[in-house]
Design a protein around this nucleic acid. Sequence first.
DNA 1: TTTATACAGTACTAATTTAGTCCTATATCG
DNA 2: CGATATAGGACTAAATTAGTACTGTATAAA
Lengths: 151, 151
Amino acid sequence: MLRLSKLTDYATVLLAYMAKTNSHLHTAVELSEATAIHLPTVSKVMKVLSKAGVVYATRGSKGGYQLAQGPEQITVASIIGALEGPVAITECSSQTHDCEQASACEIKGNWGVVNRAIVNVLESITLADMMVTQQEYSSAEIQVSWQGLSR
Amino acid sequence: MLRLSKLTDYATVLLAYMAKTNSHLHTAVELSEATAIHLPTVSKVMKVLSKAGVVYATRGSKGGYQLAQGPEQITVASIIGALEGPVAITECSSQTHDCEQASACEIKGNWGVVNRAIVNVLESITLADMMVTQQEYSSAEIQVSWQGLSR
DNA sequence: TTTATACAGTACTAATTTAGTCCTATATCG
DNA sequence: CGATATAGGACTAAATTAGTACTGTATAAA
Ligand code: FES
Ligand code: FES
């Protein structure tokens, strides 16, 4: 249903907390207590974020996690990519598809264009943007223009 | 994984075929043969599209389906909406959410903004756009700007 | 060097969602 | 009436996601 996984949501909440309290390394236990996300889940998410390079991990006593970049450099797309892989709204939206009925298909390639548009949005929004306090959903100003093809 | 359901994909393929051959009513059998989508699945999809008002259905002998509007008026968002309901990329992205940890959450409301941005993209793309023959994915020109909050 | 701490990697089960099919009912035309 | 075609709902199977647990590795301090 065009929905992100819960793990991606957790990741964003965790990263936002880390961004807010950026002075020290954060252990999984601390993150769990601060966000009320169960510890095993926090661990799972942080391991994935670490492997993807979104956060930097230090092992051992006095260890923990820290953001690999500033909140302005971490995009929502990169968070999603870490947890779920590249965004692909349909099977046919990636370059490496092999749709069975491709020869007869009227919309061939167009999901790729839609996908690209959505990725552009997600790449334009950073963790810092996600930390802005919202008064109203409707107060956001987003402008999107669709110009079709250049040829 | 931010993916549309297959039924939504089928719906778009079916509607694109209908748009291309707009002169007559299309039975489920004809649509199935033209698109190579199994008949039970075609029926399921068309029933949903009919209920949502995307297509108009005529019962009985000489019956079938036709587009309720021109391809330029049918948006991708409306197709998705018919099959999957309103787009909500996370539980917290709709106005009517009641997130357990909302009081402590650093990103409260921001998924709603991201969701709105994606919906804007999907509302800007029509069935007619989806029927343009694509040479290269990269040839599409989409411009998105994120301007954050107005206040 | 031993011990406590904290992350890494992997495997597994349960829960949820989606896909696909089928059956019965209703409407329309000739 | 009988053939055609959609409407609605129920049901099963498949796929995906969420959540948990266990074992391994690295680090720092006693
Ligand atoms: S749906 Fe795959 S090529 Fe059209
Ligand atoms: S995730 Fe629900 S309010 Fe933040």
